[in-house]
């Protein structure tokens, strides 16, 4: 597959940084699960596995209810945005292809340290989020930023920082007059919502 070929060629020396040439869908860039992305398959549990595995790396330790949160606020949020969903799936497939190439295993089946290492070695930490850009930029846009947006624009992530109604979440009208946040940090139930 093009994703594998492109990633493999780039990381042949064992070190990868910066940008990668994006694989082209017209070069046979099927998704890692073997389905043709142009067929716009419906969201699968495989994608949820990868997103949850990525969320484990991106979210702080100890977030409970993470998988349900990702299913609701990441997949659920984009369920009616077909172009975006296709981009998300393609970026996930690319990350998975890199994992198979570098580590010989699907991304979701690697341990968390290996998943973290792959993202950092891809340069995703400093990548510009760009849905049309190289692999690292697309992973930053569709996977990293999406998961961070969902988390920190919800009370689940906001509470950990000290704001129960962060921007992007409806509810600030109930809390802007309060001097303290009800329920101190430590309540890390990922699925909780506050208004």
């Amino acid at each position: 597959m093009a994703a594998l070929a492109a990633a493999g060629a780039t990381v042949g020396g064992g070190v990868l940084f910066g940008r990668m040439v994006p694989p082209r869908s017209d070069g046979g860039g099927a998704a890692s699960d073997g389905r043709d992305p142009s067929a716009a398959p419906s969201l699968s549990s495989d994608l949820l596995d990868l997103l949850d595995a990525t969320a484990e790396v991106l979210y702080p330790d100890g977030v409970e209810g993470r998988r349900d949160f990702v299913e609701t606020y990441v997949l659920g949020r984009v369920s009616d945005r077909s172009d975006y969903r296709d981009g998300l799936r393609e970026a996930a497939a690319q990350l998975d292809a890199v994992a198979r190439d570098w580590e010989g295993s699907p991304y979701a089946e690697l341990d968390a340290d290996a998943r973290d290492r792959i993202l950092r070695n891809l340069g995703v930490e400093t990548a510009d989020p760009d849905p049309e850009g190289p692999i690292s930029d697309r992973i930053r846009f569709y996977l990293v930023d999406d998961l961070l947006f969902a988390f920190y624009s919800s009370p689940a992530g906001g509470r950990l920082v000290g704001i129960e109604n962060p921007i992007g979440h409806p509810g600030g009208i109930e809390s802007y007059q309060r001097g303290t946040m009800p329920d101190a940090p430590g309540n890390t139930n990922g699925g909780e919502s506050d208004g």
Binding site: V57, L58, Y59, P60, D61, D116, L119, E125, T126, P129, V144, D145, L148, F149, F151, Y152, S153, G157, G158, V161, I163, P166, I167, G168
Partner: peptide, 15 residues
Amino acid sequence: PVIEALHAETWGDEL
């Protein structure tokens, strides 16, 4: 926090 997170160059506990 959400906007800062999206511009950060790290994630997880460090973020």
